[in-house]
């Protein structure tokens, strides 16, 4: 215990926790998109999948652990960012353009946007804020009709494009993390760097491409209310 507390008191220890919670979050989004893609199999496939999740005895264990992990990830991420801005008070060198400065701060910026997105996303799709009657619909087998919730929501062009924009921030965040996680966990073989870079792109494109495809498909009329 003493050892773990000691690790947390150092900068490297704090980043280790950010990385470890980040791995859980990466696995979460990979699982999340895998589940979401059942929407392309059909209404009942998505609704059955949602029913399976909602009736799982682990539901609240998972929800509360994810909440704790997100909070830990955000709190330590913000703390590390604050330490970093303290360490470099002179923000711009000659020849350093503002967009480079923004680029170097992309993790905290995209991270805070994603935090806001998660809050809105959960309030909207899980708690039903602003959805109205559709939230209470049941499908033929008596399961909650998540399919209709999703399609009705994304038929609103504003929501669809805001969602796509939020996913761009997820792309920025995810692209940086996949390789950085290996670095922070101490995996240092240089011969793997190109592979890890490739893996970063693949995970990012697969996850974000999958998420974006759903609002796009609704907007293009490929997914519609049955």
């Amino acid at each position: 215990m003493k050892r773990l507390l000691y690790l947390l008191s150092t900068t490297i220890g704090r980043k280790l926790i950010v990385a470890l919670t980040g791995i859980v979050l990466i696995l979460f989004v990979v699982g999340h998109i895998s589940g979401n893609l059942t929407i392309y199999i059909g209404q009942s496939a998505l609704n059955n999948y949602a029913h399976f999740l909602q009736t799982s005895p682990m539901l609240w264990v998972m929800r509360l652990s994810m909440l704790a992990i997100v909070m830990l990830h955000v709190a330590l991420g913000v703390a590390v960012t604050q330490e970093n801005s303290l360490a470099r008070p002179e923000s711009c060198h000659a020849g350093q353009s503002w967009y480079l400065h923004v680029y170097q701060r992309r993790m905290i910026i995209s991270g805070l946007v994603l935090l806001a997105f998660i809050a809105v996303h959960v309030a909207h799709l899980t708690l039903g804020a602003g959805i109205g009657e559709v939230f209470r619909l049941k499908d033929a087998s008596g399961h909650v009709d998540v399919y209709s919730r999703v399609v009705t929501t994304f038929q609103n062009a504003w929501i669809a494009w805001a969602y796509i924009a939020a996913m761009m921030f997820l792309a920025i965040h995810l692209k940086h993390t996949v390789r950085a996680v290996f670095q922070t966990l101490g995996f240092s073989r240089e011969s793997y760097f190109e592979f890890l870079e490739f893996l970063s792109w693949m995970v990012t494109l697969a996850v974000v491409g999958g998420f974006i495809s759903i609002p796009l498909s609704v907007q293009l009329g490929w997914l519609a209310l049955l």
Binding site: K2, R3, Y6, L16, T184, L185, F187, S188
Partner: peptide
């Protein structure tokens, strides 16, 4: 920069298994 990964590994190893603690 691979040395930074090595530093992280050395530090984690020392923190978790190093004989200075415990």
């Amino acid at each position: 920069v691979s040395l930074i990964a090595r530093l992280n590994r050395e530090f984690q190893h020392a923190g978790l298994l190093g004989h200075e603690y415990g």
